[in-house]
């Protein structure tokens, strides 16, 4: 069976954008996981909330907002949602076991998904922007501008976050908290505030992901559930607490899914990505990318 090169590259590009989506969602989740040692099963639902915020802003009747203005609004909104979740439900249980963390955040996820179902119904919503419609075709490969923006932004955010955690005082404090929270209290780092800041940054990244990526797919109440699990899979595959590894794993998942969905079976593409994840768990329980711990 001859493989047409243009179609192959289209699949690869789709895989890269999907990988970009997974990477951005993973980044927010990995951040909270490595700094305050909490796995947030409601993380994907923040993405869902950001997507619906975008939908509401795009369908406002009284005022037409330009997309470049909507982007910062959604980012701030999702950062705000994340901080509210942290203050209300996560902070009180932060010193409990991982079981309490998992069950509480799963409970949050149930609340958010069903609240969205009540408010917006289960109908899939579209959030088209001017960029989704503009298709460019270099070398005969058709790709929408929106996908190019997603890829560029993913890389910029990733590099920016690296700079932030290594060079700024807040970033250094976050790394310190991830290594030894008790000692941070001793040297005067406000661990409580660091947790909130971490959630705000994770939320902002997730909001950015939502506002850029929701236009490529449809928006529905439980869209976050599968995303949470993909991001968790990427984190585990990358080696828990190893953010770079998680990002590589997110891109790997995106490309594998796009190729498998394109050439073999669309219905089973998630089976393949989760199958790959479980295979990695069995073969290398500490992840593909070694066991170095830290941001």
């Amino acid at each position: 069976m001859p493989i047409e090169l243009e179609i192959f590259f289209e699949h690869i590009l789709n895989g890269l954008t999907l990988g970009g989506l997974y990477a951005l969602v993973t980044l927010g989740l990995a951040l909270t996981f490595s700094v305050i040692d909490l796995v947030n099963f409601a993380h994907g639902d923040l993405f869902m909330m950001g997507s619906y915020t975008l939908f509401v802003l795009l369908t406002l009747e009284s005022i037409v907002l330009p997309y470049w203005l909507i982007i910062p609004i959604v980012i701030v909104a999702v950062a705000f949602y994340a901080v509210v979740l942290e203050r209300v439900a996560i902070h009180p249980i932060i010193n409990k076991s991982w079981r309490t963390h998992a069950v509480t955040t799963l409970g949050l996820s149930i609340i958010l998904q069903n609240a969205a179902l009540i408010i917006f119904t289960g109908d899939p919503r579209q959030t088209p922007t001017a960029l989704t419609a503009s298709i460019v075709s270099p070398f005969g490969i058709r790709i929408s501008m929106q996908r190019i923006v997603v890829l560029v932004v993913t890389i910029v955010v990733f590099v920016g976050l690296q700079w932030f955690v290594r060079r700024t005082k807040t970033g250094k404090s976050m790394r310190a908290v991830s290594q030894n929270p008790a000692m941070c209290e001793v040297v005067g780092i406000n661990v409580r505030r660091m947790a909130t800041i971490t959630f705000a940054i994770g939320g902002a990244i997730t909001g950015l992901a939502a506002v850029l990526i929701a236009p490529l797919f449809s928006v529905f109440p439980n869209m976050g559930a599968l995303l949470t699990l993909k991001a968790l899979a990427a984190i585990v595959m990358g080696g828990m607490g190893h953010v770079n590894g998680a990002i590589y794993a997110a891109f790997l998942l995106g490309i594998v899914e796009a190729l498998f969905g394109g050439y073999v079976s669309f219905a089973y593409k998630d089976v393949i990505s989760f199958g790959l994840f479980i295979l990695v768990l069995f073969v290398r329980p500490r992840g593909i990318f070694g066991r170095r711990v830290g941001l």
């Binding site: 796995v39 991982w98 963390h101 998992a102 599968l226 699990l229 968790l232 899979a233 585990v236 828990m240 998630d270 089976v271 989760f274 199958g275 994840f277 479980i278 768990l281 329980p285």
Partner: peptide, 13 residues
Amino acid sequence: VTFAIGTLGAAII
């Protein structure tokens, strides 16, 4: 928690 995540993945498969 890795066990919880892995079993959730298996359940979805």
